[in-house]
Structure formats: structure tokens, C-alpha cells
Amino acid sequence: MNRKLLLWLPFGLCALLFVVFFAGLKHPDDHVIASQMVGKPLPEFTAGPAMPGQPGTASSDFKDGKPRLLNIFASWCVPCVQEIPMLIRLKAAGAEIDSIAVHDTTADLTKFLSQNGNPYTRIGLDEGGKAQIAFGSAGVPETFVVDGKGTILYQHIGVVTEEDMPKLLAMLEQAK
């Protein structure tokens, strides 16, 4: 083998390492773990009623031909508070929003919803995170767009902001 080439090999490997690191810095880890369930039918789940007088959420509810949003939230989650006004506006714009509350209790939820408002049609209490894991959801808040046949179209990770609203509404419209 060409000895000269061999001697430059370490330099080459170092350059490669440099490129990898540089690329890594340009695309920093976003710490977002996206669900693999997007594009797939809803997983089977049942989350019993969280609030008296309001139904719980189950996969069977999503096959009535009506596209809707499924919000995963919790009363202890600080950013979820910011999101509620946006969800209320989405509801006013015609979106139907079902929800699953994780690691939560009826008492805490009652307080949370009376303080911030209740945009939800259904609120299911997720026992042991079963539904959350079934959705491939890695945290709260997250919002899934589900079409009328019960297929997950899109996953929005984090707080729904002003800018996200047109997109979510458009997706719901398209899914009709």
C-alpha cells in the first residue's frame, strides 16, 4: 500500500470527524421523539371519563366519519395552560377536540378546567399511560389530527400556538 496515503489517513479521518461534528452543530438534536403512528389507524384504547358529566375517550369514538383533534394534556403541565385559549379558538372555528389527560386526577382537572376553560368534547383519564404509549406520545402537550375513519394524519408536538392554528384547521377541513 502507498505509505504516503496511509500517513494521511488519520488526517482524513479527523477531517471526517470534523464534518460530522459540524453537521451535528448545524442540526442540533431537537429532542423531539415523533410518533410512528402517524398514517396508521388509531390504536385500540379506552380512557374512562375523567370529569363527571363528560364522556371519556375511546378509539371507537373516532370512526363516525368526523375528523377531529385529539389533545394529550395534563393539569400539572405548565405549557398546557398556554394552549387552552388556542384550543378554545379552534373549537369556535368548528374543530371537535377530544382529549386524554395523563397522570392526572379528577380533582386536579376540575380546578385546571375551571381556571382555564374547557374546550374538550371528551376527556379520558389515561390509566397508567396506556393510551399515551399506544399513541407513541412522548410528552404533553401533543395534538393528533385524526380523520373520520380513525386514521392518524398528523402529530403536533408541543404547545399549539397562533401560527399552528391555520394548519390544523386546514388538515381537519381536508380530512372531511
Binding site: I33, G128, G129, K130, A138
Partner: peptide
């Protein structure tokens, strides 16, 4: 662990890690 990200769920105090252990 999808919450703390650096650790396996067998060594994490996050709620969701507990859910996964249960599952």
C-alpha cells in the same frame, strides 16, 4: 426513556418511564 432521553427506563424517575416499565 423518552422524557429524560439520556437514561434507560430502568433507571429513570420520569412518570412515563414508570408507565413503560409497567407495560
Amino acid at each position: 426513556c423518552v422524557v429524560c432521553q439520556g437514561q434507560p427506563i430502568s433507571g429513570s424517575n420520569a412518570d412515563l418511564a414508570g408507565d413503560m416499565r409497567r407495560l
